[in-house]
């Protein structure tokens, strides 16, 4: 008992330490390196070091905050979906939910650009939410027909491809100078997110994650199967709808601000569960949020610094780290099935 608690406590301490370290690193490192000493001074006396102050508050802090919050949201969304489908490989990107959101956001952007108005963040989130719900609906339809999880995953990936190709089509046919932005966004990136957008994102994501946390108890019963949960007094219908809405909202929010970000939703909860040796939602949801934040901060740092001044898209980096984890899980699962 004690060793388990210790493991969880140590896990949390490491996550928080990593988070703090990466936040500082992300703010300090960049095309213009700002050492912590200078950062400290610039924040205390903005007048003395205007350049540093502007870079830090205008660009780096919003971007860092975005990577942390959106990364956390993705990991929590992944964990919710994994519980919903009782499948450890489910995630917003793999099931095509992010791509659905991406499609509707791209449509909104193109329409708004061609009509000469700029869509605000709330509209973007709404569009993304609608798109993610459409994808989710398709996936639910398929999952009611086929019980096999591998089929579901393949269908999700296919839905993702369809949505992505339509998005590309839309992007190609719209001729506007802003299209470069749109193109960057459709590849996934934390760059160019301003402080108002970060605040909007936080206002959505933090309450949603708290709601998800409050669902930990029914979720833990649901992990033992739908029948078990129903017998424990869980209102299954309401619970399932809540899971769908919360995970779609999280995925939509991330997509609206940063575009599609791959594999975070699958890899992070898995890493957290195996490190903490538990799948209890009460423990894993907050830890996944922290883990997602750490993972995305790390990946964002790589996108900015590896080939600086050229920036990579965030999914390029998250895939490199995330996809092997998914492959490992698939292999492990097959072996596990054979033994079971």
């Amino acid at each position: 008992m004690d060793s388990r608690r210790q493991r969880i406590a140590i896990g949390y301490i490491i996550l928080i330490a990593l988070l703090i370290a990466l936040v500082i690193l992300n703010i300090c490192v960049g095309s213009a390196d700002i050492p912590p000493q200078r950062l400290w001074n610039a924040l205390r006396f903005p007048e003395n070091d205007k350049v540093a102050y502007n870079i830090v508050t205008g660009l780096r802090i919003p971007r860092t905050a975005a990577a942390a919050i959106l990364g956390g949201a993705l990991a929590v969304a992944g964990f919710l979906l994994q519980n919903f489908f009782a499948n450890p490989i489910a995630g917003p990107y793999i099931l095509g939910i992010s791509s659905g959101a991406k499609l509707t956001v791209a449509l909104l952007m193109v329409i708004s650009l061609s009509h000469g108005f700029a869509a605000n963040s709330a509209e973007m989130v709404l569009a993304a939410f609608a798109g993610s719900l459409i994808s989710m609906g398709l996936i639910l339809l398929i999952s009611s027909k086929v019980r096999r999880m591998s089929v579901l995953i393949v269908c999700g990936v296919m839905i993702g491809y369809i949505c992505s190709s339509i998005t590309d089509l839309v992007v190609n046919f719209s001729d506007d100078s802003n299209i470069v932005n749109l193109h960057n966004w459709s590849m996934g990136s934390f760059s160019g997110i301003g402080s108002t957008e970060v605040i909007t994102a936080a206002c959505i994501i933090i309450p949603v994650c708290l709601c998800a946390f409050m669902l930990s108890k029914p979720m833990s019963a649901y992990q033992l199967g739908e029948e078990y949960a129903r017998n424990s007094g869980v209102h299954i219908k309401a619970f399932r709808i809540a899971l769908i809405l919360l995970s779609s909202l999280l995925a939509a929010c991330v997509t609206a601000f940063a575009g599609p970000v791959s594999f975070v939703g699958v890899a992070v909860p898995h890493l957290i569960k195996s490190a903490f040796r538990t799948a209890k939602p009460v423990i894993v949801i907050p830890a996944s949020f922290l883990g997602g934040a750490v993972f995305c901060l790390m990946c964002d740092l790589v996108t900015r610094t590896l080939f600086a001044p050229t920036e990579l898209s965030i999914s390029t980096v998250t895939s490199v780290f995330g996809a092997p984890v998914v492959i490992y899980m698939l292999l492990n699962r097959e072996r596990w099935k054979e033994n079971g």
Partner: peptide, 12 residues
């Protein structure tokens, strides 16, 4: 209730 469906768990 204990019904027939086999329960699969993760880290439990």
């Amino acid at each position: 209730v204990l019904l027939t469906g086999r329960v699969r768990t993760e880290y439990m």
